[in-house]
Amino acid sequence: MTTAQIRGLPVVTVLGGDDVAEVRDVIYSPAHGAVMALTLNRRGFLAGRRKELLPSSSVHAIGQHAVMVMDEQALMPRDEARADVAGAGGDRDVLGNDVLTERGVSLGVVRDLVVLAGTSGAVVGYQVSKPGGGEAFIPLPAQLSVSGKALVVPDLTEEFVRDDLVGLGAAVDEFRGRLGLR
């Protein structure tokens, strides 16, 4: 799933079956390779911002149709959330970055993150605009260094560029497996 698909999803309690909020935005840490927290809106017609944050540690699962939490206690006031979660950085530090392989080939510009559905926010790839035009999906290694303007990925990434999310699902496991063997 891309974060564009996650924004606007209802936040639903597993134990209560109630929609307690909806996703406003995604706070991503490239260093952790994971979503750190979700910011929230209220549900309903008069939807406004909710002050609470939903830390990923309290997320049961991010799914295609809902973000699941055990109960409403998962929503934490901002000042109680850890500093690195509450930071206003958001995912903007990688969006717009150029993706370069180690030998200097550009794979495109980051447009969105790909989150593994059913997890609490594992980021397994990026959606990129290809240098020649068009969209593509690339898998990410488990950890990644990011400068703020560009990010450098292993040469192997070139072999695993995929046109759609379904293809990327299979590519991620094989990609990470082959990186681990080197």
Partner: peptide, 12 residues
């Protein structure tokens, strides 16, 4: 697992 105003929640 749960049932409320929005949904019925079932085990995976």
């Amino acid at each position: 697992i749960g049932s409320g105003s929005y949904a019925v929640v079932l085990a995976s």
